[in-house]
Amino acid sequence: MGEAGIAILPLAPSARFSLRLAAAVVEIGEAGGFWLDIPINTCHVAGERMTVRLGPNEWLLFGPQADAIRHDVAATLGDRFFSLVDVGDRDLAFAVAGIHARDVINGGCPLDLDDIVFPAGSASRTLLGKAQIVLIRPGAERLYRIECGRSFALYVRAYLENIAHEFLRSPGSGILA
């Protein structure tokens, strides 16, 4: 997929939590397999669990099992002051991949996606057109995960497809249902 011109595909549902925790607490490092002590606007993948740090005291936690995540994180954080809210159904996700992935995302997103500025492991809340998104680049390949509010998904997808139009002639390109 990484070699395609451009590919856009909806991602399967995932468990998702919004974790809020006083920044000073990040010294605990890891909570239930989620690495909290990572720089703002980065992500960390450990097995099936991915941590995204969006701000000084805000993280998104992804993984396959909501109950397990809730249990593991709560067990680690104990009686510290934190907020863990299930947002698994709040957002939907797309993958945008291929050599034109950046061109397509930059068709509506004002972030600088150059490898130096937005390398593997980057993640940030930002905009795509008139929709707020979270843009995540888990690895070095040109594969980006876009998270958006559930009711914005139709717009986000149509917007990406609109931009992708001009690249669809490149080999291996496609928009998957």
Binding site: A131, Y155, A158, N162
Partner: peptide
């Protein structure tokens, strides 16, 4: 740019 017709702004549909 793309902001015309259906893409003028997000039209949110309830579940």
């Amino acid at each position: 740019g793309a902001a015309r017709g259906a893409l003028f702004e997000p039209v949110r549909k309830a579940p």
